[in-house]
């Protein structure tokens, strides 16, 4: 079975979870209260752990692929790595790839915003991941199944935590409700991309490794309706959705994010500590 598409799909998940972790970690030391500072940092670490597993898997897919397949994956392999003369590793994929080589969904690269923005983004993404991981743990691909099984427990807590914050802020004070509604207006157009498979994703679906992400739209909407009802929020009417992240076309925030995240490995390649 060709692995290029599976490699790209794994990267897509790895990139998305890495950036969720990166953005959340910007709260470390700046949380609204000590307890929530620790909570968001725990979540950031969970995401980082998930992305590590996925990058390790992606690297092994590349390293074990036949030369013809490697040529197809080449577009997504960091140029700098080729001078290292060693096997591809997780850090190369995370810290040396360029903007157009990243396949994360756009939602995950948005700046952290205020607390309302962060918890709403976390709610939307973990509600999606919950469905995805629950299916992934039954995947025919053993490695993805193992990652799904480990991650579903983490995400189920993230979903619970973020749902409660959405309810608290929505049904809170006038200001908290306003902030949450502002966040909703900014984030909503980035939620559609979650459920639209990229070309390589469709092939992985056809191979029977994953389910079609369109199937997750209905349960996701149901979850959003339930929580929004308690949070006294209106679910936005269907509107135009922004796409592109899964194909490597990113928002204006992406370059700054990568510059900060990758600065160390780009300045001191192969640095360890």
């Amino acid at each position: 079975m060709p692995t290029t598409e599976l490699f790209l799909y794994t990267l897509q998940l790895a990139d998305s979870t890495l950036l969720m972790g990166q953005r959340h970690s910007e709260w470390t030391g700046h949380g609204p209260v000590l307890e929530q500072d620790i909570a968001i940092t725990n979540i950031a670490l969970d995401y980082l752990g998930q992305s590590r597993n996925l990058y390790q898997y992606a690297a092994s897919l590349y390293n074990n692929a036949p030369e013809t397949e490697k040529a197809a994956m080449d577009k997504y392999i960091p140029r700098l790595w080729k001078s290292f003369q060693r096997e591809l590793q997780e850090d190369d994929l995370a810290f040396l790839r360029e903007e157009h080589q990243f396949l994360n969904v756009l939602l995950t690269e948005l700046p952290r915003g205020d607390w309302a923005f962060t918890v709403l983004k976390e709610f939307f993404y973990s509600a999606f991941l919950m469905n995805l991981y629950q299916d992934l743990l039954h995947s025919t691909d053993n490695q993805l199944a193992a990652i799904g099984e480990k991650s579903v427990k983490e995400v189920s807590y993230h979903l619970r935590w973020s749902s409660e914050w959405v309810i608290r802020l929505g049904d809170g004070t006038e200001e908290s409700n306003t902030r949450l509604n502002n966040a909703l207006a900014d984030i909503w157009m980035f939620t559609g991309e979650l459920f639209v498979p990229a070309a390589y994703e469709q092939i992985v679906v056809q191979q029977g490794v994953i389910k079609d992400p369109q199937l997750y739209k209905e349960p996701w909407q149901e979850k959003v309706r339930t929580i929004f009802q308690q949070a006294l929020l209106d679910v936005p009417t269907p509107s135009w959705m922004q796409h592109g992240g899964k194909e490597g076309r990113h928002t204006e925030h992406m370059g700054y994010l990568l510059a900060e995240m990758q600065q160390l490995q780009r300045t001191y390649p192969n640095a360890t500590w």
Binding site: E35, I38, A39, N42, E164, R168
Partner: peptide, 20 residues
Amino acid sequence: SLHAADARMAIENARDVYTR
């Protein structure tokens, strides 16, 4: 000890602060 708005949040904060 820790700060929390209600019992539910207190249990979740305790999970995050004291059972890492």
